[in-house]
């Protein structure tokens, strides 16, 4: 446990001090001003646009962090053989994965928390400027959407870990996890699109439909974590929905990490 914690700690320190994180934070400040500017252009729904911008930029910056700071921190460890200094310790391969995952997750949580503060600040600014447009706005809906976005990023990170556990270069890992993200966040829409003609009697190839359905199960269904529309309009989201999505996210990450542990245990580091 101590070993796991210390690995998480140095991973966090290493990640936080790298320039990627600083760059992303500067970008975040830029996005905050952009948010104030763009949502101020709206005629009516200032609150909605402000929340949209806040949530989407959080999602975007989070993805940059996952791909370029997160997945890289793990796969570079193997590529540059810094992993030797860890595996030479009495740390099992599984603990290595978990410690690394905990450390990188901490980086993401920490950076996104800072970003969320900036984004909330931009919303406060807009709220004071246009109080009449913020009547339906709710901080709790915004918070839950932040939370689910965070969970979805952790899920994407866990798929990155799976790929890093067997691929030998960080580039392949990066490409595979980006592709997974793209499929995971659009599969549900594609499925919905294919199912509509089915309902009105038009024929789509059943094979295609099966493939897409299978993709929905295999790839992380990231649309489950998207309650941005609800947050933007202050619509009611039942707690049971939020809890079940979080449960799904944690379970999916758990499966991904278990698979990575199994693969990693057998792996050699020549």
């Amino acid at each position: 446990m101590k070993a796991l914690f210390s690995l998480a700690a140095i991973t966090f320190k290493e990640g936080i001090r790298s320039r990627t994180v600083y760059g992303i934070l500067i970008f975040a400040i830029f996005l905050m001003f952009l948010n104030v500017m763009i949502s101020g252009m709206m005629m009516q729904d200032v609150a909605k646009v402000a929340v949209d911008m806040a949530l989407s930029s959080l999602n975007f910056v989070g993805l940059l962090l996952v791909f370029f700071a997160g997945v890289n921190l793990f796969s570079k460890d193997i590529e540059r053989k810094t992993i030797y200094m860890v595996l030479a310790r009495p740390i099992s391969r599984s603990r290595y994965i978990l410690g690394k995952f905990a450390g990188i997750s901490a980086i993401i949580v920490f950076s996104l928390a800072i970003l969320a503060i900036f984004e909330s600040a931009s919303i406060v600014i807009m709220k004071n400027g246009y109080p009449a447009q913020f009547l339906r706005f709710s901080w709790s809906a915004l918070f839950f959407s932040f939370l689910l976005t965070l969970i979805s990023l952790i899920v994407v990170l866990s798929t990155g870990f799976l790929f890093a556990s067997f691929s030998s270069t960080s580039f392949i890992t990066l490409v595979l996890s980006i592709v997974t993200y793209l499929i995971g966040s659009s599969a549900n829409e594609v499925k919905a699109l294919l199912e509509v003609p089915h309902d009105i009697g038009e024929r789509t190839s059943p094979l295609l439909l099966y493939c897409v359905k299978a993709a929905c199960y295999i790839f992380p269904n990231l649309s489950l974590f998207d309650i941005k529309t609800e947050a933007a309009h202050g619509l009611f989201v039942p707690l049971s929905y939020i809890l079940s999505s979080i449960f799904y996210g944690i379970l999916y990450s758990f499966v991904m990490l278990s698979l990575s542990c199994i693969i990693f245990k057998r792996r050699e580091f020549p």
Binding site: I38, M41, M43, K48, V49, V51, D52, M53, L55, S56, N59, F60, Y181, L182, S185, S186, E189, V190, L193, L222, S223, F225, D226, K228, T229, A232
Partner: peptide, 24 residues
């Protein structure tokens, strides 16, 4: 719209904002 829905990758709100701003 269907194409936009898919390519928004879960940022439908933002895409919608963009389209409106384009018209505006």
């Amino acid at each position: 719209a269907d194409f936009l829905k898919i390519s928004s990758l879960g940022n439908k709100g933002l895409f919608s904002d963009y389209l409106f701003l384009k018209v505006y």
